[in-house]
């Protein structure tokens, strides 16, 4: 059975890799299989991972006694009817005369998300970043004045200030403001360069993982001849 799994995995991997040459029937087959299987998989996950435990089991637990017995004895939580109604409202898109009702659910989701994320982003992307930037430009350690740390602190402070200026949209980027903005984008580009190299290394490790899987498959084939 394991050998069959390896064969299927290896052949599908090769079919996907064949796209590197050009689009071909093998790639099309793998692509359609992947899309179809994954769409069905996520639908099943949605039903069994969300609708059954988070809706049916919450609103009327005895309904799930045959499939999730651990949840069947819980007390009903009727406030789950609210998201249930919102979910049903989303489906009203399918009925043209009342399709407008689906906007209510969408508006709720977007509004709720914006509210929840506002506080989170304020902490991590605003206050947290400001606090990390409050450093002395001149660094003095135990051994006295530190040139390296001072340089690092200057780069960090200038980078943060110029980066913020680059993302300032209420003023035209001209003159000194424009120069600071350009410094900001240069610093961003240097950062992207470093990030690019780092991520490419991570991707190569993924490729190595796939290659080693193909090696495993070749091992299965070799096993037949030995």
């Amino acid at each position: 059975m394991y050998g069959l799994q390896v064969w299927i995995g290896a052949l599908l991997t090769l079919m996907i890799f064949s796209f590197l040459y050009k689009d071909n029937p093998f790639y099309k087959f793998a692509e359609h299989l992947f899309v179809g299987v994954s769409a069905a998989y996520w639908m099943v996950v949605g039903v069994w991972g969300t609708m059954v435990p988070n809706m049916l089991a919450k609103i009327h637990p005895p309904l799930v006694r045959n499939v999730l017995p651990a949840l069947a004895t819980a007390e009903p939580e009727f406030h789950y009817i609210i998201p249930c109604i919102l979910g049903i409202l989303l489906l009203t898109r399918l009925i043209t005369p009342i399709a407008w009702l689906s906007r209510w659910a969408l508006a709720f989701i977007i509004g709720y998300t914006a509210g929840v994320r506002f506080s989170r982003y304020l902490q991590s992307d605003f206050i947290g970043q400001i606090k990390s930037s409050l450093i002395p430009i001149i660094s003095v350690g135990d051994g006295g004045f530190s040139i390296g740390m001072t340089f690092s602190h200057i780069v960090l402070t200038v980078g943060v200030v110029c980066g913020l200026i680059y993302f300032f949209f209420s003023k035209e980027h001209k003159g000194a403001f424009g120069a600071a903005s350009r410094v900001g984008i240069y610093i961003l580009m240097v950062t992207f360069g470093a990030s690019f190299g780092y991520t490419v290394m991570a991707r190569i490790s993924l490729l190595i993982g796939r290659m080693s899987f193909l090696g495993e498959w070749l091992g299965v084939i070799a096993g037949w001849f030995s």
Binding site: F126, I130, S133, I135, P136, I137, S139, L164, S170
Partner: peptide, 26 residues
Amino acid sequence: LKGADAGKVIALMFIGLGVTLETLRV
């Protein structure tokens, strides 16, 4: 977007003041 820009001005003020005070402290 304009409100976010106001936020950036506040951030720049905090950073400017904080960095100056930290440097003077050293």
